[in-house]
């Protein structure tokens, strides 16, 4: 599907979605409500068939946190980027690890380094850092005078 066709299909599934212009791929902006069912639909709809989640990124924008999902289809070879905007102090979003199993690790990483809570995740623990670690290192306001070297 072309970018325009993708936009039409996405709007049918999620009327509240808005789009971001100027990037390489079709980029959808949405909130945490309804992301779970929308994810299920883009995965199962045969004309979309986004079966491959290749990247999950959490970004701290100081006022809010976005989780960016990069999806592609191995059948149709089209790509969709979904940005879910979350509250800065209590970032919470439904897990998609039941839909794409790769998300289990990616979401644990986002939790570990950015503090995003994925509700319904089967095993949401720190991935790289120790369980006793305080704070979320990739956030912009994170300070650690002991372990971090200022470059």
């Amino acid at each position: 599907m072309t970018k325009e066709e993708l936009k039409i299909s996405v709007t049918e599934l999620l009327p509240s979605a808005s789009f971001e212009e100027g990037s390489e791929w079709t980029t959808v902006l949405t909130g945490p409500d309804g992301w779970d069912s929308f994810a299920r639909q883009v995965r199962s709809a045969p004309q979309l068939d986004f079966d491959y989640l290749f990247c999950v990124t959490a970004v701290d924008w100081k006022t809010h946190i976005t989780v960016v999902y990069h999806l592609t289809s191995t059948v149709h070879r089209h790509t969709l980027v979904v940005k879910v905007k979350l509250d800065h102090d209590h970032p919470e979003v439904a897990t998609v690890s039941g839909i794409w199993r790769t998300a289990e690790f990616h979401e644990r990483e986002a939790y570990d380094l950015m503090g995003v809570v994925f509700t319904g995740h089967p095993d949401l623990r720190r991935l790289f850092l120790t369980d006793e670690w305080k704070g979320w290192p990739l956030r912009k306001d994170y300070e650690d005078p002991v372990n971090m070297i200022k470059l």
Partner: peptide, 15 residues
């Protein structure tokens, strides 16, 4: 960069 993300192949393969 404001934020940079590396999607490494080994990470997903290990899962």
């Amino acid at each position: 960069p404001y934020r940079i993300k590396f999607r490494s192949p080994g990470f997903s393969n290990l899962s």
